[in-house]
Structure formats: C-alpha cells, structure tokens
Nucleic acid binder design. Sequence first.
DNA 1: GACGGGATCGCCGGGATAATTA
DNA 2: TCTAATTATCCCGGCGATCCCG
Lengths: 169, 169
Amino acid sequence: MPEKMMKTIEVDEELYRYIASNTRHIGESASDILRRLLKLESQKTEPSAEPAPAGVQGEGVRRMLDAGTLAAQDSAIERFMTILSVLYRDNPAAFAQASDIKGRKRIYFADSEAALLAAGNTTKPRAIDGSPYWVITNTNTGRKRNIVTQLMAAMGYAHGLIERVSQSI
Amino acid sequence: MPEKMMKTIEVDEELYRYIASNTRHIGESASDILRRLLKLESQKTEPSAEPAPAGVQGEGVRRMLDAGTLAAQDSAIERFMTILSVLYRDNPAAFAQASDIKGRKRIYFADSEAALLAAGNTTKPRAIDGSPYWVITNTNTGRKRNIVTQLMAAMGYAHGLIERVSQSI
DNA sequence: GACGGGATCGCCGGGATAATTA
DNA sequence: TCTAATTATCCCGGCGATCCCG
C-alpha cells in the first residue's frame, strides 16, 4: 500500500503500548488507531452527519465522570471546558446541531473567537480542545451549568446523565 | 520531561497537524499532547501511578528533616534545592509524574535549562542535584513553599509531612 | 546572562455579584 | 412596578518578574 505523506513522531513506550493494544485488525496503522481513539473522522470521509448509535451516546461522558477527570480540575472553567471537549467528541454532528443555543445578546458557541467577541462585551472566548469550536467563558457557574444542560438536552442525552454532568461543574 | 525510552510511529500529515495544533505550551512533546487528548476518554487511565509503598515513601525526607540538614542552610533557595534533590531520590518515578505542575505562564520543572528559560523571563533555573531535572528559582519564599507542597501532594506524601517540609523552607 | 536572594508590587484569570433588560 | 433571566463589571486571590538590598 503506497504511503500517503507520512510524518514521524516520538511517543514514550507506555503510550506506544497503549496505542498498539488498541489495534482492531492485523496490520492496522498507527494513524488509523489514533484516529479511532481520538474520534477523528477517518481520512477523506466527509463529515458524515450520522449521529452515533443511540446505545453509544454517552459512553465517553460516563467514562469522564467515572474516571474522576473532572474532580481533578480545580476551577469551574476547566471542568466546563473538559466537558465540552468530551461532548464534542462523543458526537460531533449532534454537537454542531445543538451549538446554536444563545442568550439574549450573546451567542455561546461559534467556530471562531471573533464571532463570540462580536456578540458581546468581554465574553472571554476559549477554544474547545480537539474541536473547531469556541465558547464564551465570562459567566458565573450557574450559567455554565445552564449552558451544558441546554447543550446536552439538544444533543439528546438522558436527563439523569445531564443532571450528573452539570452538577459536576 | 525526562528522556524516557522513546518509540517512533508514523502518522499521516493531517493527523500530525491535528496533534500539533493541540500544543498547550512551547516545546510540548507529541507524547504529552497525545496523553492529554487521550486521557479524556482512555479507559485504562489509572489516575496516575501508585505512589510507591507508603512505608518507604518519606524515609529519606524524614531523615533530612531530623538530621537538621535544612536548618544548616542559610538561604531559602538552598533549602529548596536540597528538598527537591531528596524528593527526587526518594521516588524518581513519582517525581517525574508530579513535575508537570506549572503556573500561569511559567513551567516549574523541566529536563533542561532552556525549557524553563523559554517559558518565562528571568526564571533563574537551577539543576536539581542528583537528578536530570531543573527548577525555576526566581520566586518569593511563599511560592517556593507552594511548589514543594504541590509537588509532594502529587507524589502522594502525607499531609503532615508535607506541612513539615514546606514550613522548613 | 552573569551578583545572588527574594520581597514587593503589578498584572491576570476566575467567577460572584451588581447592573441591565425583557 | 416587580420579578426573572442575562450580561459583564469588577473584586479577590494567585502568579510573575522587576528591582532593591545585603
């Protein structure tokens, strides 16, 4: 198989083993494995609007909750950003649909910092890790919970899970 | 970060750019970035390695305290450096895990002087005796205590001991 | 980059609370 | 006008690094 343009990176041994252990089929390349683990669209495939199978929705979110990833963060903003990042990966298409929630004047999500800055004063936008989106950040904790609640509801998560997540901020 | 055993893997160019674009700070390695990206959902993430048998952990540290080694030093910096050196020897692996603590802009530990210099102005790095690490030194005493406290907590030491040590700076 | 130590003070991020608007 | 929702000002605590002092 003729290689596409390949780049070489170094990873420590433990990480290497972790990646290797996630091989799904013989001969699978590091790129393919990583793409799956990172939940990136596989090469070429267009944004495929197919929402993840309902059974799967929430997997990553529960894992985040159970792993104590959130408890380890020490500010509401960090927890907020982590949650959004996980939500995006859990279902990019649904996230895209749901992300048009907004307030009276401000818009909460956008694909650029400028868009958020333009819709309010001092909104303090931040990039959502591993996604093309940005969020507004200059809000009290109550509103952060709110935003997550609205977003998850629009993405179709179950009430119980929504509650757990937003309370964990 | 210390020179762990490194493995080389190949990734396609798009994936490479994706990884690079998630760099959080200058000089961050591919391993570190990937670990962060994967951690959010990697099912195997045991929340950090076990902090060595409790019985052993702290031996060297107590000895240092009791021997009055610290009291003999006449500057906070000297005491600070001595403590770090002892901590490293007490448990190099835990130290490695814990040493990624950082401030708003500066990183506190690195395996080279250059890395510390690159992340701030006039950080006055110093090599930690008997280890491959360097620390930042241009801080007030309060922050030195702070750094030691955070480091020891991340290494898994008991609160009481942490308190004794950081107060002795 | 060469004096070293580190207190002091300026700056910034987090986010509660005050202000504003529907 | 009164209340509820939303905005964004602004205070506080933490961090950085200049600059003073021995």
